[in-house]
């Protein structure tokens, strides 16, 4: 961890992990609901971005799009250089499984399985060798500091530990993007801090992180923030201490 790629500016342009260009999502009806309006957003390797917004602002829709769980009705969406908006479902599922790691508010650990089995589940559809899956799961759990709780059942873990297991599960396939949906929503503030510290450390070690939250305190931890309101991605409001070193400004909002 010593050779940290901490300064993205040293490489001229870190590769783009994902880019939304003029993405819209409209749900049919009368009147039609414009859940997302012409959104532009670029995330580069090593980025740490939060998307903040109140409920009903379009966070879920954005998460759906970024997680390849839904398709935009207009615009393009490229992930790892692939235009995924028009890909067949089979390839979108493959991209989702291999390139994106999900972290959810509810953790979503299977209750009857140990921490390691839960983490290994993320590789079930990716690799057929059970021994490899176990080894990778052990490694991932060690990365989140749970190497000593490999065989613990979720019910015996604290909330913070459960979310760390979920993060290990998201990491185990070495995804291009760690997509976190309200990762601290079910945690008390002390535990939330440890989880956010972990995300910060992972980002410092090179993992690209996107956190979607309504909590300003969580949003403040990121290097870059965008706000989403009424389906529009607004101008990044602040760049904190890493302004100079931060990735190029992305996601110019299509302000009215």
């Amino acid at each position: 961890m010593t050779a940290a790629p901490a300064d993205p500016a040293s490489c001229a342009e870190p590769p783009v992990v994902l880019r939304l260009a003029g993405c819209s999502k409209t749900y049919p009806g009368s009147p039609p609901v414009h859940a997302l309006r012409s959104a532009d957003l670029t995330v580069r390797a090593g980025d740490y971005l939060t998307v903040v917004g109140p409920s009903g602002s379009g966070k879920s829709t954005l998460l759906n799009l970024l997680g390849l769980l839904d398709r935009p009705t207009a615009g393009t969406f490229t992930l790892a250089g692939v235009d995924v908006a028009g890909l067949p479902e089979r390839e979108r599922t493959a991209l989702r499984g291999r390139r994106i790691g999900f972290v959810f508010q509810e953790f979503h650990l299977l209750p009857y399985r140990t921490a390691r089995e839960n983490v290994a589940l993320a590789q079930l559809y990716v690799t057929g060798r059970a021994a490899d899956r176990d080894r990778a799961a052990t490694d991932a759990l060690e990365r989140v500091g749970l190497g000593h709780r490999l065989h613990a059942l979720p019910t015996t873990l604290s909330g913070g530990e459960r979310q760390r297991v979920a993060i290990a599960r998201a990491l185990v396939n070495e995804p291009d993007l760690l997509l976190c949906d309200e990762p601290t929503g079910n945690l008390d503030s002390g535990t939330a801090t440890t989880v956010m510290d972990l995300l910060g450390r992972l980002n410092a070690a090179g993992v690209t992180v996107v956190v979607i939250t309504h909590d300003p305190a969580v949003a403040a931890r990121a290097r870059r923030r965008v706000t989403i309101l009424d389906g529009r991605i607004l101008v990044p409001d602040e760049h904190r201490g890493v302004r100079a070193a931060g990735p190029p400004t992305a996601g110019k909002a299509g302000a009215p």
């Binding site: 997680g67 089979r90 599922t93 499984g97 999900f102 079930l124």
Partner: peptide, 8 residues
């Protein structure tokens, strides 16, 4: 969850 993890 399984769908998110790549299950078709």
């Amino acid at each position: 969850l399984r769908r998110a993890l790549g299950a078709r």
